[in-house]
Design a protein around this nucleic acid. Structure first.
Length: 114
DNA sequence: ATCTTGACCTAAT
DNA sequence: CATTAGGCCAAGA
């Protein structure tokens, strides 16, 4: 069988990001923590960037711990990320999510739910 | 093969 | 309270 560095990381990150409910957001740290060791917040952002380019994962629902749209620049151009969030009913001000803690969705809930 | 950069986070000074 | 340092893993040059 083929031996890769760590294909699991991608699957986990993709899966978690895909499980994010509508109108809800999460942070890199939360996902990284959900994975635990073997991955870091940076990998999440990098993996999400790839997934976003693939169009299979709503990366616009993932922001940093501050609720700041750090990676909006990676969405091609303009405030596409912010527009997507606003379309979901999320209010964004100055590239920052309003009531972030309220809209925050913890991926750990998946582990608890299942 | 090595070095640098990267959508980050936590802790220490 | 603000800034610096360290950790973490992977991809590009």
């Amino acid at each position: 069988m083929k031996k890769k560095t760590s294909p699991n990381i991608y699957e986990i990150i993709y899966d978690i990001t895909r499980q994010i409910p509508f109108g809800r957001v999460t942070s890199f740290g939360a996902i990284a923590r959900c994975i635990g060791t073997g991955a870091s917040a940076r990998m999440v952002g990098w993996a999400l960037g790839v997934s976003q380019q693939l169009g299979d994962v709503p990366a616009h629902r993932v922001v940093n711990r501050n609720g700041l749209l750090t990676g909006k620049h990676h969405f091609g151009a303009n405030q596409e990320m912010q527009h997507l969030l606003e379309k979901e009913g999320i209010e964004v001000k100055n590239d920052q999510i309003v009531d972030f803690e309220t809209l925050f969705w913890d991926p750990l809930s998946l582990l608890e739910g299942e």
